[in-house]
Amino acid sequence: MANPTRWETDTGPEHSQWYIDRFRKLVAEGADLAGEARLVDALVAPGSRILDAGSGTGRVGAALAERGHTVVGVDADPALVEAARADYPGPTWLVADLAELDLPALGEAEPFDAAVLAGNVLAFVAVGTEPEVLRRVAAHLRPDGVLTVGFGTERGYPLTAFDADAVAAGLRVEQRFATWDLRPWRDDAPFAVSVLRRPSD
Rank of each mutant, 00 (worst) to 15 (best):
V127L: 14
D10W: 13
T5N: 13
A99L: 07
E66G: 12
L147K: 00
P13R: 05
L103F: 02
R142Y: 04
G145T: 09
A115E: 01
H140I: 03
G35Y: 01
G150A: 10
F177V: 03
Y88K: 03
H140T: 01
G73S: 09
A45E: 14
D181L: 11
E132T: 08
L103I: 00
K25P: 12
E174T: 10
A34S: 15
A115Y: 08
R24L: 10
E36P: 08
A138L: 02
V127I: 13
L80A: 11
A139C: 11
D10F: 10
L80F: 00
R155G: 12
M1E: 15
E8I: 00
D87W: 04
S200G: 15
F23I: 09
F177Y: 04
D163W: 07
R172L: 14
V71D: 02
P131D: 10
E154A: 14
D163P: 06
T11Q: 15
D10H: 15
A79S: 14
D181F: 00
A76S: 13
G35L: 11
T153Y: 13
R197I: 10
D77H: 10
G61D: 01
H15W: 14
E14T: 12
L101Y: 08
R197A: 01
L103S: 06
L103Y: 07
D32V: 12
P78D: 12
L147D: 00
R85M: 01
A166I: 01
A42Y: 12
P91R: 01
A42S: 15
D10V: 12
D144F: 04
G68S: 13
A28Q: 14
D21C: 04
R6I: 07
E29Q: 15
G107F: 07
R67G: 08
Y157G: 04
D77F: 06
W180V: 02
T92V: 15
A115W: 03
V81F: 10
A169V: 09
T148D: 07
L159A: 02
G90C: 12
L64H: 06
P13F: 09
R67T: 00
R135W: 11
L80I: 05
V167E: 15
P184Q: 09
L159K: 00
A34C: 13
D144L: 08
A123Q: 10
A45H: 05
F124L: 15
L117F: 03
T9M: 13
A189R: 13
A31V: 08
F112D: 08
T179F: 03
L141S: 06
T160L: 14
V167I: 09
Y157C: 06
P143V: 04
D32L: 13
